[in-house]
Design a protein around this nucleic acid. Sequence first.
RNA 1: GGGACCAUAGGGUAGCUUGGUCGAUCCUUUGGGCUUUGGGAGCCUGAGACUCCGGUUCGAAUCCGGGUGGUCCCA
Length: 465
Amino acid sequence: MEEFSQWFHNVLEEAEIIDSRYPIKGMSVWLPKGFKIRKHILRELERLMDKDHDEVLFPLLIPEAELAKEGIHVKGFEEEVYWVTHGGNKELNEKLAIRPTSETAIYPMFALWIRSHIDLPIKIYQTVNTMRYETKHTRPLIRVREITTFTESHTVHEMYDEAIEQVKEGIAIYKQLFDSLAIPYLIHDRPSWDKFPGADYTFAFDTLMKDGKTLQIGTVHNLGDTFAKTFDIKYEAADGNHKHPYQTCYGLSDRVIASLIAIHGDEKGLVLPPSIAPIQVTIVPIIFKDGGEEVLSKVNEVKDILEESGFRVNIDNRSIRPGKKYYDWELNGIPLRIDLGPRDLQNNKMVIIRRDTFAKEECSLNEDIVSILNSYLSKINDNLKEKAWNFIKTSMVEITDLNKIEETVLNGNIGLIKWCGDDDCGKEIEEKTNLDILGKYDETSGVCINCKKEAKYLISIAKTY
RNA sequence: GGGACCAUAGGGUAGCUUGGUCGAUCCUUUGGGCUUUGGGAGCCUGAGACUCCGGUUCGAAUCCGGGUGGUCCCA
């Protein structure tokens, strides 16, 4: 495979996911094909979220005074905020921030909504765009100035324990989503210097790109009562006392789509997991001058049968040669292709081609094609999952010598090292190796790789996006 | 945050060093027509570009400055 970033850029363009030529740095246009993929992913996420959350929609703009309330939080974002300063030619009395994230938009409203412990818990989410003035190099879908698809959840609880549990629930939901997309992930307890600004602690999902850099694809934060205090969110407890509740928030972005494309794609283009493929099966009728009618009617028959069983099916009857169609559908990552021509019709069969392996098999038209195709789709899903997980698992290498970390990681691996848990020691490791600590992966014993004191955690270290 | 490089049809490129021969090359793309269709079809005939602003010059795709956008490396 050519260099990863070039491949990624090409596939986004050729498969018509987004058009990144929009003339503002870090902003792109979602094209119909990409948007359909986005829609199917969102649908799956919404299905999971709706079980225990309510969807809402907050405004895009945040008054300066609200944004500035939480000191640590604002510090984390101040360099990246876009400001609206004018209405027409008139300068505004108060600058308005375009949300870099929505805590400071939502929490003042929580303060109005919450009066009693009976109002709790609150669990809401919204899917919105957010803007961040990135100063580093932007990359389509990975580092952007407009995050177009930010699904953020915010919860409020009476007890701290409930917030702890909610963080676990958030993680569980994201696991289900990533599993259905066959995206492998490592869950890290982020080091204190890399947690969400204002949070007690942050868990992050990291996946691995083909160039050996990790990509953060989801985060779950326990906010404690920090924001409740700042925004004066209080409830009257059963005992009549007024208390600050505890909060969590968690979010996913365009990066989920980026990782989906990057992880499964190959030199022919996209490879989409069946669960979110806008089209799951495409049928290519092979038509000669004569006999086209019969082939088409058979193809339509097959399509109807499949559609009745819930498949997303397409017939490609464009008047171009079949070879061109094959390349097109492979580029678009459609999981299954069916070829059906006069020769097949004679033998009462069709040909099924898998996108993930290119395996070609014949299938009699007398058989139960619904269950046959269903089993193909689940095989494809299993295969994608297995390949992707293998890739990330085999990249994880335990390292015991500080001097060898950089070399090992730059070879495309995620390093696992033992760490004492001391912040200064951790930052020292990052400085010495020129890499990023992703966070705690597990507990361990032995000695810290850097300070040689007692080790508490097995942590991951990698080159990150 | 520091540095390097780049910008020519929708995409990829040649031309730039040494300004004029550019009415700008080739591949791909694309409109129309005919013949075709089991892995990117062929022929005919059309379409499509010098990133923007300023400067030097008789003359700028080519030289200089700046803006915008992009790529990469280092912190």
